[in-house]
Design a protein around this nucleic acid. Structure first.
Lengths: 341, 341
DNA sequence: AACTGTACCCAAAGCGCTTTGAAGCGTATC
DNA sequence: GATACGCTTCAAAGCGCTTTGGGTACAGTT
């Protein structure tokens, strides 16, 4: 079923049918209703390609998701982020185009999406320190919103969590409990979020006059086995840490496994704070959460990135939209003062 | 940059430029090279909407992903599945369109995608027992491949793991070790995969003459807290199970937490087998895996579903493609004979 | 009776590509 | 010298929609 056939059935011109369906005023209410009736009866939906060609719009948003080239790993938070974003798109009748690309040749993905006119805007994931994509996207002239931040420059839109503040606060909290050996299990520090978290961690230590010890800082792709092995190793070393602050729930799970494998009890012998993206299948929100956590919903971030991008598209002259969210510190079962020796 | 402008620059007709770029034989090698040269110089990419309109093809595949309506939960295996599928699409120059929809109104998502001509084919996720989508998709006449199975009927394409065989084998393995009280922590049994796993579990018990006890079977959305609470509850009950077989790594993690919270040791006091989708961030593949597991890579399933769908699209008259994969049983650290009392 | 305004509707052009049918132009054939 | 035949190129139509710039009919105004 297409416009022309529908128009024939209704004995109207395609013009009138189009206007009726798109809510233009120069068509009588009577015919508008007749048209809408017939459209839904015949399951008529305008062809997206034709509509896009005629309007110059596409009604699709591109998400370019980096897959770490070596280990083919895709960050599990994306599922929740996308589910949030798709909520916003659904309401606005946008579609979501996904490109998972090796993070060493992302550039061609952005070029493709825009040059071929596949999308009206782009959500950028996984910003890196000194990210070269910023210049590229600005040059391409496509509206975009970054989930996270690239540089400190003002000229682009982003939604981010105050990772530095959160990790400073978490580290302080552990120090206030009396911990003096606090370890950081972080993501890859080429990622801006990990960079900020490390900075916050160091700031927290500094505020309490605690020494910075490189041996207490780990940084890698955030998998469960990585957390397990690094935490196990740190606990076995001389002068082991009594507390950990870790960058994701997955890491917290690996850390917990390592702690218990040493015969230690989490929340008594060892304390732990996790950054919690509030993933749907890993909720840390029982009456007493298993982990003390810095929480910020990645699903909500998805909603907000999407909404802001749509605003940018509808309103190309507008100023960049920037939002810095605070994570909340949720008290759980995994933190306590250090044991007296 | 578009075809017309490129043609003007080259002082050729759009026809010739188009043919040159699309590898038609009726253009001389000399001009073909000249055209390709100019195209890449000017970053020319054909407009996807126009190309699609002219050819009737779209070069996009739709993935419709159910989000459980109540809890807004999206299954974490999708990230890995999509990363596999996108590999296949990249090679064939297809794009991936994602629709995350409440699983109670998926129908309109399929109608939309096809009626508006947004996709050339669809991958169907999360098949349910007696799934009404099968009839709908066949009626819509769009090529599709199901990840999993819907009914036993022969008339459609799917790629699935032999869940029944796997869970029968896993249950048998536990019974052979001497376990007599074996519990199942399953996903929602409205899902076909969970249905099959339950059937396999029961078959395994039956083969060893073990009784079926409804109190040892749990079924729900597969979250960590769910596994934790159900396992804790079963362990505290009279006549507690000595072994568990669970439907995902996330469940295994929740189960482990519950087991250890009782002061029990996994792989000594309690045995556990997990179904392992081989997720990139939860790999169970150290020298000795922490969990004994039934493993089948969901990323590979993504690759294969995508490849088969592309074959179906290129070759509409072909027979349905159906593949049943066997999971491998990986011996890990979480299983042992039951303790003698 | 002629004019203006308003409400409704339409023909045709155009979005950027592919594809059909045909044309121009050497070279070989009779 | 006329005809046929490759080889290369092109003009124009068409994909399904939106949008511009009208047109028609009828009521109200002068």
């Amino acid at each position: 079923m297409n416009l022309k056939k529908l128009a024939e059935i209704l004995e109207l011109s395609p013009t009138t049918v189009s206007r009726a369906l798109n809510g233009f005023p120069e068509v009588s209410e009577a015919t508008r209703e007749r048209v809408q009736q017939a459209a839904s009866e015949h399951h008529y939906q305008p062809n997206a390609k034709a509509k896009g060609l005629a309007t110059g719009r596409t009604f699709a948003i591109g998400h370019v998701i980096p897959v770490s080239a070596g280990h083919e790993m895709v960050n599990p938070v994306f599922a929740d982020f996308l589910s949030g974003a798709s909520k916003a798109y659904l309401a606005a009748h946008y579609d979501m185009l996904l490109s998972l690309v090796d993070d060493d040749d992302e550039e061609s993905a952005y070029r493709n999406l825009t040059a071929r006119g596949r999308v009206d805007g782009i959500i950028v994931h996984g910003p890196k320190v000194d990210d070269s994509r910023l210049a590229l996207l600005q040059q391409l002239g496509v509206p975009f919103v970054v989930h996270g931040r690239m540089t400190e420059s003002a000229g682009y839109s982003w939604v981010d969590v105050n990772n530095e503040g959160a990790f400073s606060r978490g580290t302080s909290f552990l120090a206030d409990l009396g911990h003096e050996r606090i370890a950081l299990i972080n993501g890859l520090e080429s990622m801006v979020f990990a960079h900020h978290r490390r900075a916050g961690y160091i700031e927290g230590l500094a505020q309490h006059g605690l020494a910075i010890d490189e041996r207490l800082m780990a940084s890698a792709e955030m998998t469960e086995p990585y957390a397990y092995s690094r935490v196990a190793q740190m606990l076995q070393a001389d002068n082991a840490p009594t507390a950990f602050i870790v960058s994701s729930m997955i890491l917290a799970i690996g850390a917990r496994r390592a702690i218990e494998a040493q015969g230690l009890v989490l929340g008594r012998d060892v304390s732990l704070i996790a950054f919690d993206d509030d993933l749907s299948y890993l909720k840390d929100s029982e009456a007493v959460p298993q982990f003390t956590a810095l929480r910020s919903s990645v699903r909500e971030a998805g909603v907000q990135c999407a909404k802001n991008l749509l605003r940018l598209i509808d309103n190309p002259q507008s100023e960049p939209l920037q939002e810095l969210w605070e994570a909340s510190l949720i008290l759980g079962d995994s933190t306590a003062p250090p044991l007296k020796e």
